[in-house]
Design a protein around this nucleic acid. Sequence first.
DNA 1: ACGATGATGAAC
DNA 2: TTCATCATCGTA
Length: 173
Amino acid sequence: MRKILTASFFNRDTSIVAQELLGTFLVRKIGNKEIAAMITQTESYDGLHDLASHASKGRTTRTEVMFGKPGIFYVYLCYGMYFMLNVVTREYGYPAAVLIRGVQGYNGPGKLTKFFGIDKSLNGLVAEKSTGLWFEDRGVAVSKSHIQKLPRMGVAYAGPVWSAKKLRFVLLV
DNA sequence: ACGATGATGAAC
DNA sequence: TTCATCATCGTA
């Protein structure tokens, strides 16, 4: 079973999407080469009130895509070196996204984007086959007991309340 | 524990 | 136009 995830999958509660993304595959096609890896770690960033989210600063040139349609990519450069891959969730106009923090074999968001050849040119594009990067449900069953909930990483600046929230989801293998 | 390295947003 | 800040990683 191979089902490509579309807008209706992403147009839901952000932490539900973040959890259901675990066990699905991130697929990248460059030319006629196709690579895929199972997603094992995600983080949820939801709404203007979430101080850890870039969108908490409001609508800016950088955060604009987070207000966009569900199922588009939000890619940005971090620490001048690494690209971060996010997928926009919720309805158009509501700022929310899921950070793809790790796939099987490549933990760490900077490493996985390097491995998949992801850069800013994908920012704002729809996750579908024609883009060359999309999400696929390959029928891996993930039970709730195999999902670990932890605080998000590197978000101490968001203050004690928001940095403590368990919005990082890890798939136990 | 820390430096590399550059886009970003806010202040001036 | 300048400044502080950062959703990281590899080397110490």
